[in-house]
Computed example of a mutant assay.
Amino acid sequence: MAMFRTSALRTGFVATAVLVVSVGCTVQPGGSGPLTDARPGGTPAGARVTPGNGTAEPSRTESGEPSARPAADRTTPPPPPSESAPETAPDPAPEPEPEPLMASGDESEQVRELQARLRQIGHCDRAPTGYYGSVTAAAVSSFQTKRGLDPTGETDAVTWERLLAMTDRPTRDELRPPTTKPVAKPDPRCLKGRVMCISKNSRTLSWMVDGTVKSSMDVRFGSQYTPTREGTFAVGWKSRHHVSTLYDTPMPYAMFFSGGQAVHYSADFAARGYEGASHGCVNVRDETKIAALFDEVRTGDKVVIYW
């Protein structure tokens, strides 16, 4: 009986010890119950559960910095941006060539001045017209060549400045001369009286009174087969609306000086210039001038034709 009690006491002591060990090793102060090393659901101690996904975040240290994450929870940093070769700036577009001040096809008072200045220094033998044609382009090219410039035939700023420095401002007569070519020096026979002084060399007619030129105009002469006679003559008769009986062609403002030869207006001369020729008469190109001359000239006035 004594042995049974001893065995029972031992068994109870052991059971009590086993029960204490299975409950825990410490007791929460205040008797609120035992503390454990795990949270409900098996979350490791020291970890905080993020609401919504149940993922544990690492606890923070006393300094406030997060402790190291497990290797499996770390995010791989993105690779650094690749260093591409710097872009090469495109070559700048070439600057456009400056527009010329004057060129073929232009028509203006500046073109007339250009022609007058070129004529002053012998690069143009035509009277200014104000139109920039092939004759003017050739004259500009000649000037450029002689001055060491690019002979484009177009008047750029450099060409114009060089020409201005070498010439004088054209006078009114230089800008609008009475004839295409310079008027010839009068023959001595033209210096007295009332004379139509006609030069074959300059192809001009000057109406002179006592040595003074009153008006001048362009004229053309007969061909080699029908030449205009040279010498001193007198106006025999006049016919304002004359028509040739030999050639059946109009001869307005005709002033006859030698047989059938006369000074008169020619529409063909006005249209074709010096490409044509007369049948021996002295053709006048400007109708307005010959009309005024017709009113001035009297029968008996002198006509001098010379080379």
Results as ranks from 00 to 15, higher is better:
285 R>K: 14
261 Q>T: 06
221 F>Y: 15
264 H>K: 01
244 S>A: 10
273 G>N: 05
269 F>S: 08
257 F>L: 05
257 F>N: 02
225 Y>M: 13
229 R>E: 15
237 W>P: 00
282 V>L: 07
262 A>I: 03
272 R>M: 13
274 Y>K: 04
256 F>I: 11
249 T>N: 05
266 S>V: 09
250 P>W: 08
242 H>E: 11
269 F>Y: 12
286 D>P: 09
224 Q>V: 12
243 V>Y: 06
237 W>C: 00
256 F>P: 00
226 T>Y: 13
229 R>N: 13
238 K>Y: 03
254 A>I: 04
240 R>E: 12
229 R>S: 12
249 T>M: 11
240 R>P: 05
224 Q>F: 15
262 A>K: 01
239 S>G: 01
272 R>G: 10
226 T>E: 15
265 Y>C: 00
265 Y>L: 02
280 G>A: 12
279 H>E: 04
275 E>P: 08
280 G>Y: 01
237 W>F: 02
257 F>K: 00
274 Y>M: 11
233 F>G: 01
256 F>L: 02
271 A>I: 02
239 S>Q: 10
286 D>G: 09
283 N>E: 14
268 D>L: 14
230 E>T: 12
286 D>C: 09
254 A>H: 06
244 S>P: 00
235 V>S: 02
234 A>E: 14
241 H>G: 01
275 E>G: 03
271 A>E: 15
223 S>M: 15
274 Y>N: 03
273 G>Q: 03
235 V>Y: 04
285 R>S: 14
225 Y>I: 11
256 F>Y: 10
230 E>F: 02
244 S>Q: 07
256 F>W: 10
238 K>H: 02
287 E>V: 14
257 F>D: 00
269 F>L: 08
276 G>E: 08
240 R>D: 03
245 T>F: 05
248 D>C: 08
270 A>S: 08
274 Y>E: 14
286 D>W: 10
230 E>H: 08
281 C>V: 03
241 H>A: 04
256 F>C: 06
259 G>Q: 05
254 A>N: 06
251 M>K: 02
284 V>G: 10
226 T>G: 07
232 T>W: 05
277 A>N: 13
226 T>Q: 13
254 A>P: 12
239 S>V: 01
283 N>G: 05
243 V>E: 07
269 F>H: 10
242 H>V: 01
